[in-house]
């Protein structure tokens, strides 16, 4: 039963241009919460600060201001507290071709988080868990000995999902998990994520720029524009009755078969 909460999160970067330096506010006063068993979609265009939020939540960077709370308490930045946080909050990266080390086999990628967070497991236990994890993401357990370059994009992303699930987390952050995949296999990976979310009672932050999948796969939608959250609410509400101008723009940009074919049927051939 994990709950991750963000309050007043700000991240500024200093840009140096010769002697002048300006500040770029990538994330500006953002607040939301992630609960177990719920999927929250974070939607926005490139450069709107979505991935910066993911990096802040994963403690790959320090926020300039604001706080991140895990189960109501501020998160630990070092020591045993950080290890516990790393076990509970996991991530699926965008690019499955970059997120697996070309030098190591699939088993290494799954065994490391298992060893780190369950140090008392024996070698046989770990092998059994690796097989189980691969089955969970619908991969042949025989792939354990393969290197990443022998796998397809979809298989790699499934391995990355298995790696994120290895420490048995409560929160999963998926940063555009299907944007680098072939259109034909995107649905399979998204369905897998949805199934795992239900079975493991995960809280999922689904970062995307695709409103259609955001509506289909998530309970709540946050719309982000220039570092701010401009709209948030239940998925259908945000899509069907957009309040903010930017959300309306996004919704209009999504191809809508009903509207298109509706127009065509009205014009007589």
């Amino acid at each position: 039963m994990t709950r991750l909460e963000v309050r007043g999160l700000v991240k500024e970067y200093r840009l140096r241009d010769g002697f002048r330096s300006t500040r770029l506010r990538a994330v500006d006063d953002v607040g939301f919460s992630l609960d177990h068993g719920r999927t929250v979609a974070l939607v926005g265009q490139s450069g709107s600060g979505k991935s910066t939020i993911a990096r802040l939540l994963l403690q790959l960077e320090r926020p300039t201001a604001g706080e991140i709370l895990l189960d109501g308490r501020p998160v630990a930045r070092r020591g045993a507290g950080l290890t516990r946080y790393r076990r509970l909050v996991q991530m699926v990266f965008q690019d499955p071709f970059a997120s697996l080390n070309p030098h190591h086999d699939v088993a290494h990628h799954l065994a490391r988080p298992l060893r780190l967070h369950h140090p008392d497991l024996s070698r046989a236990d770990i092998d059994a868990r690796i097989r189980h994890l691969l089955e969970r993401v619908q991969l042949d357990p025989g792939l354990a000995g393969r290197r990443p370059h022998e796998l397809s994009g979809g298989q790699r992303q499934r391995v990355a999902i298995a790696r994120a699930l290895a420490p048995s987390p409560g929160i999963l952050i998926a940063d555009e998990p299907v944007s680098m995949l072939d259109v034909s296999i995107r649905l399979g990976v998204l369905n897998l994520l949805a199934d795992l979310q239900r079975e493991e009672d995960l809280g999922v932050l689904y970062i995307t720029h695709d409103l259609a999948t955001a509506r289909h796969f998530s309970d709540d939608i946050l719309v982000m524009y220039r570092g701010r959250i401009v709209e948030h609410g239940p998925a259908d509400e945000v899509i069907l009755n957009p309040k903010h101008e930017y959300t309306r723009l996004l919704a209009d940009a999504t191809p809508n078969p009903e509207r298109r074919f509706g127009e065509e049927s009205r014009t007589p051939g």
Binding site: L58, L60, L82, T83, R86, R87, Q90, M91, F93, Q94, D95, A98, S99, L100, N101, R112, P113, L116, H117, A160, R163, A166, P167
Partner: peptide, 13 residues
Amino acid sequence: SRDYVLASRVAGE
């Protein structure tokens, strides 16, 4: 700054 290095940081290495 490759993703797999970040991924192992996230794993807690």
